[in-house]
């Protein structure tokens, strides 16, 4: 009976009208080509970003009538005052310094808290607690950065910082840094947690079998084993912190200065760009053009960090299984 059914299945299978193999091959080729072109667009985007930034930056450095601008002066100058005074100064270091100060504060705040929370979630928390906390983190991750800026301005500075010290003004690097820290916290936390959970259970079991406490297992086995993922998470979070715009534009202030004082107001690279694009600087003017040079600097810094992250992940990834 089976073989009869098999034979008849074979016969019925011949009844249908076959699709044209030629059309099949052509549609396959067409779709492949379309998808390839889509993929190529990502490369085009990168090329376009670099081209636009490079040409506009070149325009800035070669602008007629401004002999004071030089590549060397731009990257080593310690004064940035394009809008003030009779003689504008274009030394990008104060902006870079402001960016680094805010990023450092954010990192000091978010990296340890994020990693410890990740360890808690991955090693200690009960499944139910974990689900709830992950949902809270996901909300935190989706909050628009302008909201954190508002939070820094209306809560962190007046209710957390100013009661501590009268040195904090309305705008300061500290509150912007903390707000950026809150913003990157979910990134640090969820990516680190992924890295820790990817560590195979057999490693934990092995450590417990040697008489380790939970602390020994977490801190001496799991975290070192997941270290490359954790570092990649840190780098990604810091990249986001460096490029963050709305928080610093609202809370860090508008004075570009070289300082390590967290209570002082600073201007970051992104905040300067906001100031220019928001303001009414003439499009052909030197201030306007300078924002492209700043943007290029920012792009190069984040580019370097992302590359480092990719290399860390690739080179130091432990392969289990």
């Amino acid at each position: 009976m089976t073989s009869f059914a098999a034979r008849s299945a074979g016969e019925i299978a011949q009844r249908g009208r076959p699709h044209s193999p030629l059309r099949r091959r052509w549609s396959e080729k067409t779709i492949r080509a379309i998808l390839f072109l889509l993929t190529l667009l990502t490369v085009v985007t990168t090329v376009a970003i670099i081209t636009v930034l490079a040409t506009e930056t070149y325009g800035f450095f070669t602008l007629a009538g401004h002999p004071e601008i030089s590549l060397w002066g731009f990257f080593t100058g310690e004064e940035w005052s394009p809008l003030l005074g009779a003689e504008p100064m274009f030394g990008v270091l104060p902006l870079v310094c402001g960016t680094l100060l805010v990023t450092a504060i954010a990192g000091v705040f978010a990296l340890p808290i994020g990693l410890l929370t990740a360890v808690y979630l991955s090693e200690y928390a009960a499944p139910r607690t974990r689900t709830i906390l992950k949902a809270a983190l996901e909300i935190l991750a989706g909050v628009p950065t302008v909201v954190y800026g508002f939070f820094a301005l209306t809560f962190i500075t007046p209710y957390l910082l100013q009661p501590l010290s009268s040195g904090f003004g309305a705008y300061n690097a500290m509150s912007a840094g903390i707000a950026v820290g809150i913003m990157i916290l979910p990134i640090v936390c969820s990516l680190s947690e992924d890295a820790l959970r990817a560590v195979p259970q057999s490693l934990r079991d092995g450590a417990y079998a040697l008489g380790s406490t939970k602390f020994d297992v977490s801190a001496k086995v799991v975290v070192p084993a997941g270290l490359s993922g954790v570092i990649a998470a840190f780098l990604l979070a810091l990249t986001r912190a460096i490029g963050e715009t709305m928080i610093v534009a609202l809370a860090a202030g508008g004075l570009a200065q070289m300082t390590a004082n967290p209570a002082a107001q600073v201007q970051t690279m992104t905040a300067y760009m906001v100031q220019i694009f928001l303001g009414d600087a003439p499009a052909a003017g030197i201030e306007y053009k300078s924002s492209y040079a700043v943007a290029f600097t920012l792009f190069l810094i984040t580019f370097a960090l992302t590359w480092t992250g990719a290399i860390v992940l690739k080179r130091y990834r432990e392969e289990y299984e």
Binding site: T42, T46, I49, L53
Partner: peptide, 18 residues
């Protein structure tokens, strides 16, 4: 692939400039 992960790290304000 590397380019895509780089793009995901580009600050959004830079996309604004593009």
């Amino acid at each position: 692939q590397l380019n895509v992960s780089n793009l995901s790290g580009v600050p959004s304000i830079v996309y604004g400039i593009l």
